[in-house]
């Protein structure tokens, strides 16, 4: 059984979505996260600008 499938055994978790290996690895992939860091920062700066 894949790691992400283990928790679906609990009834409370059975209707949720749980990330698989690829999605989890992208969370710590430095190149991808650096790109996301830039994008999130730009979006947050726009939100801050719209809020003032």
């Amino acid at each position: 059984m894949k790691e992400e499938e283990l928790n679906f055994e609990k009834e409370q978790f059975s209707l949720t979505m749980i990330p698989g290996k690829f999605a989890r690895s992208m969370r710590t992939c430095l190149i991808w996260q650096f790109i996301r860091f830039v994008i999130i920062n730009v979006k947050m700066i726009i939100v801050v600008g719209k809020s003032h």
């Binding site: 969370r27 710590t28 430095l30 991808w32 996260q33 996301r36 860091f37 999130i40 920062n41 947050m44």
Partner: peptide, 14 residues
């Protein structure tokens, strides 16, 4: 466009 969420190192650095 400005209501978003994600999980990862990027947010952690922020």
């Amino acid at each position: 466009d400005y209501t978003f969420g994600e999980i990862g190192l990027a947010g952690h650095w922020i």
